[in-house]
């Protein structure tokens, strides 16, 4: 079980040095995670970070907890299996926009719907960084910086918060790598939420999307309390610019699995004896 242990944020960092570029937003997410852990006094031995593949998915190795760096797009599935089998653990899945919304898109929808008591942090920089800058499902349609799509992807970008809401996520927030203190608070709240919590982080990639340095002038902090009416939230997520940060929607419902059957120690082979 979780126990309060006095540990400083930097004590949650492992000895492995990040491979990220200088200026990468993911450093900020790493700092926010360790800060949230310190704030909650989370026990390192009882915490697992699970990821897929991509720049952001390297994060578990940089935290001194248990971790699982899986294959591309499947981090959410690993994390749900782990949490269902070991409900005593604090489980956090994380990864990038390509990992979570493209190759892993189906798992994202079903994780929102299944509502296992865990947290998913999507570190969205609107680009495949590890493969050197291709368009992702959240890239603007006219972004023409990739040789793979020289005229831009030409496809409407996903709206992750709207997708999460439609799929049934009961807790949706947005953070920004330029505001790590706010993000740390959101991560702590996400962990404490008794169900599936989805934190969408705008995490800039200055290497392949230098224009994202402009985000700091676009991002706003939402001052209103979190919405709890799905219809109102749907309207917000449909019409907003995607740069409002804070806890956007919270409508807790029973997490899965529900009450467990008592162990009966029954003879499971009984039915086969004639």
């Amino acid at each position: 079980m979780k126990q309060s242990v006095k540990v400083r944020a930097k004590d949650y960092k492992s000895e492995v040095k990040p491979i990220w570029c200088p200026g990468c937003g993911h450093f900020s997410v790493l700092n926010a995670i360790t800060k949230a852990f310190a704030g909650l006094g989370i026990a390192k031995d009882d915490t697992v970070l699970v990821s897929g593949i991509g720049c952001s998915s390297r994060l578990p190795a940089y935290v001194d907890s248990y971790g699982f760096h899986g294959v591309h797009g499947r981090g959410l599935a690993i994390a749900q299996g782990l949490k269902v089998a070991r409900p005593d653990l604090t489980v956090i899945a994380l990864g990038g926009d390509g990992d979570g919304f493209s190759i892993g898109g189906n798992h994202f929808l079903h994780a929102c719907r299944r509502n296992v008591n865990m947290t998913y942090i999507a570190m969205d920089n609107e680009v495949y960084g590890m493969t050197k800058g291709q368009a992702s499902p959240t890239t603007p349609a006219d972004w023409d910086h990739s040789k793979l799509t020289p005229h831009g992807p030409g496809v409407r970008p996903f709206k992750p918060a709207a997708l999460a809401l439609a799929a049934g996520a009961p807790w949706i927030a947005r953070g920004y790598s330029g505001n790590p203190n706010q993000m740390a608070g959101l991560i702590a709240a996400a962990i404490e939420h008794p169900g599936f919590s989805f934190l969408h982080v705008l995490s800039q990639c200055i290497t392949f999307c230098p224009e994202q340095t402009d985000w700091k002038s676009i991002v706003s902090e939402r001052s209103e309390p979190a919405l709890s009416d799905a219809d109102v939230a749907a309207s917000l997520f449909h019409h907003e610019d995607g740069f409002q940060t804070g806890l956007l929607y919270a409508a807790p419902r029973n997490s899965w699995p529900g009450p467990q059957a008592q162990v009966q120690s029954a003879d499971i082979s009984e039915g086969f004896r004639l």
Binding site: A77, I78, Q80, G81, L82
Partner: peptide, 8 residues
């Protein structure tokens, strides 16, 4: 992958 997660 769920199987892997639980096994982990």
């Amino acid at each position: 992958n769920m199987t892997l997660g639980a096994a982990f």
